[in-house]
Design a protein around this nucleic acid. Sequence first.
DNA 1: ATGCTATGTGATACCGGTACCATGCTCAGG
DNA 2: CCTGAGCATGGTACCGGTATCACATAGCAT
Lengths: 329, 329
Amino acid sequence: MTVSRVINGVAGVSPETRRRVERAVTELDFVPNGVARGLMSSKSGTLGLIVPDISNPFFSILVRGAETVARRAGYRVLLCNSEGDLALEKQYVQDMIAHRAEGLIIAPVGDRSKANLVPLERRKFPLVLIDRSVSGLECDLVQADSVAGAKMLASHLLSIGHRRIAVITEPDNVSTARERLQGYNSALKAAGLKSSPSLIVRTTADRAGGHAAMQQILQQDPRPTAVFAVNNMTALGAMQAIREHGLVVPKDMALVCFDDVEHLAVLSPFLTVVNQPTEMFGTLAAQLVLERIAGGPAGPSRHVVLNSDLLVRESCGAKLMATSPALRY
Amino acid sequence: MTVSRVINGVAGVSPETRRRVERAVTELDFVPNGVARGLMSSKSGTLGLIVPDISNPFFSILVRGAETVARRAGYRVLLCNSEGDLALEKQYVQDMIAHRAEGLIIAPVGDRSKANLVPLERRKFPLVLIDRSVSGLECDLVQADSVAGAKMLASHLLSIGHRRIAVITEPDNVSTARERLQGYNSALKAAGLKSSPSLIVRTTADRAGGHAAMQQILQQDPRPTAVFAVNNMTALGAMQAIREHGLVVPKDMALVCFDDVEHLAVLSPFLTVVNQPTEMFGTLAAQLVLERIAGGPAGPSRHVVLNSDLLVRESCGAKLMATSPALRY
DNA sequence: ATGCTATGTGATACCGGTACCATGCTCAGG
DNA sequence: CCTGAGCATGGTACCGGTATCACATAGCAT
């Protein structure tokens, strides 16, 4: 007890004893066991953070934001890479419960993640979803307005003359995919066009998926003149496929997507994108989960919807259109 | 005890009791407390991973590799972003000790990280350095051959005609900076040239640093014809500064660097780089630290040196040289 | 001298698991 | 019928902290 008092700087220890303890602490290089403290206090000081792919710059920037806020509040971050795999996600969630993480920030795999997350809900576990919502699960959420963003993107393509715009997206059980497709359809409708199912290709939202989907699109006759990719990685895969096919963006095929890749934009501002405030996803989510931890599980769930911006660069062909509008359409 | 036996599937419980316990576990949604287990077993099941910048693709890919290996071995990963800040790094290291992480993988800030790491050494804490070594600290290490890589890169620039090659690097207390500069100098020497101190600009190894350093280089008269950036982020900053200056890479200024940015290379294979096997840094480091945990602190420290490859693309101006070698030099 | 408070220190219990041992019961063998 | 083995179950202690309380000693007033 006396040692505990000294270490925690609590009053009620004689100066003499305090010095002796301090000397022993130094000599033995003693560091109090945080696990034991956690057991006593029922506070692990840990937040979970589950994302589908940490190497995707969208998520790595988001992670940085969340980690910074968490650390400043005295929390550690357990990072988990779900690889978009429901079973793995489930393991991670269970691990959070078992190790008594005090809160969880998660970019869920999709709507089916609900089964993985209900145990948390049941326990009133502080939980914040990022990027994607989960159908039927009511909890704190930080997302961008995907419908509006997608509509902007599609409208832009339409405005510069594109009529056959293919979409590379994920299955509909991912909320962002659903919403972005909805925005796309809404833009078409506003332009008096009908959405054609054959133009919508569903795949995994990574480079390989984008690549495969693009190959399929390039086989179509008549060939679409533009492609709308559901995120940055699918766009890169698509880009690769287009180049392998001997075509040039934007001359032969326009390409736009969600999520800017900042590093990439610095090197060459090429991709026309809808940019989301990525780091803010992380910082806001961390703040929400910390508030939830501090304030108890009560209170209605909060939905933060962030604005996203259309960044018109080269890959959409806007400049090409400006100089020779009749060239291709 | 009986509950413990049932949960751990230990024999010696009657089928009847076992069923009753299982029913109670289900009803109460009981999950054993991992913190308490950790206290008992003195095993936290946690690995620490400290990197200077998680949003740098080099590190985020490395993190993914490490996390995957750790998880498969049943370990959780505490991710820490040191921001290249020694004080912050110290905090993180102390936290690892306090919370009894079983091992630590760290890309240290620099040689001065030694003071932060000696407490670990003293405790025989399983420790693996990645990317950078720490002068005077003997422990497990995964790195690339920076000297050879830098020599390749500089030799290539020399071979296509460059003579005034500026270097943007970090202070010498970072091992990779030291070694890459050494490789550069060695290439110059082999070509019968002398290194000029005015061509070496030291800065922070991030985009802002690269930007500032490049601005300085662009003021020089005579202006260097090529720049060797110590890593990917400095190269991007340099690129930005070059463009802001109204110049074009590689026509007006060649640019090469360490570390490929894969996403970027997919979009447009532009930067000539020395590519390190990034993910392998992470997987190998995780394997080493797991072995160290399993095998005890004994045994000599192991140094893994990975090969790196020169990827000649456009930014070095090799193609330019090939078509009109006399154009600029 | 006696009583009272203030102060410093340590004993005890508990957080939630598990190792180890004790107990009680059943059943087979002598 | 008694003994001992074998099984099921629970008691106790401990991991390493901390909250709480008990107690010893000192200092002061009466």
